[in-house]
């Protein structure tokens, strides 16, 4: 009888530990799937696809080409940023500072990007033969060029900021000027009051002096 109970506890213990292990394992799996995608949503790509689907009126050829160029630019930016990140990330994974889930996400994104580039090249060839060979080169030039275009906006923003700063400075200067004038007036006022008091005191003294001799005379 005792051996039966022993067997039951034994098996029950096994099942319990399996359950616990399974529970944590499942949670971990979920956590891996939760890892964020390497890049945010590819907006230029979505834009191109939406443009292709436009009816009444259909998108013009130039619009589609522009959208495709934008999509290629996004791909180029992503390739550049991945190339930069790859070495660093590989080192971090080797050290164990970063989990394998991030590395998995990275390699998946890399593969996706490869397909995206192939898709862009194919699309470009549908517009014009052999555009696929040059579109990425053009796009990378455009990415560089866009950086210097940013200057236009920056310049405007900077001008406004500097003007604002200048206005503030002037306000402050004006404020200090007014303040110092007020201080000056107050000082002058104080001095005047003081002078008046002194004058009164002197007058008093003079009166006393004047009255004393008289009293002396009287005493004589």
């Amino acid at each position: 009888m005792g051996s039966v109970w022993l067997a039951i506890t034994y098996i029950g213990g096994w099942i319990l530990s399996m359950r616990i292990f399974g529970y944590f394992w499942k949670n971990r799996k979920l956590a891996i799937n939760d890892a964020e995608p390497w890049f945010p949503e590819n907006k230029p790509r979505a834009l191109y696809i939406s443009l292709l689907q436009q009816t009444e009126p259909e998108a013009t050829d130039a619009q589609l080409r522009a959208a495709l160029l934008r999509r290629a630019m996004e791909a180029v930016t992503r390739v550049l940023s991945m190339r930069e990140d790859k070495q660093v990330l590989a080192n971090l994974v080797k050290q164990g500072t970063v989990g394998d889930d991030i590395w998995t996400e990275f390699t998946v994104s890399e593969k996706e990007l490869e397909y995206e580039i192939m898709a862009i090249v194919e699309e470009a060839n549908t517009f014009k033969e052999r555009w696929g060979q040059t579109i990425l080169q053009t796009a990378s030039e455009m990415v560089m060029h866009e950086k210097s275009k940013l200057l236009e906006k920056e310049t405007k923003a900077k001008k406004e900021e500097e003007a604002h700063q200048k206005a503030l400075d002037e306000q402050r200067k004006e404020h200090t000027r007014v303040q110092s004038e007020k201080n000056k007036e107050a000082r002058i006022e104080r001095e005047r009051a003081k002078a008046l008091q002194e004058l009164l005191a002197e007058e008093d003294a003079a009166k006393k002096k004047a009255s004393r001799p008289r009293s002396k005379k009287k005493s004589h």
């Binding site: 949503e41 907006k43 979505a46 834009l47 696809i49 939406s50 443009l51 689907q53 436009q54 009126p57 259909e58 998108a59 013009t60 619009q63």
Partner: peptide, 13 residues
């Protein structure tokens, strides 16, 4: 697949 809500109006997107 995500799309963008857009239309073409006066030759502009």
């Amino acid at each position: 697949m995500s799309t963008v809500d857009l239309q073409i109006y006066n030759d502009k997107v």
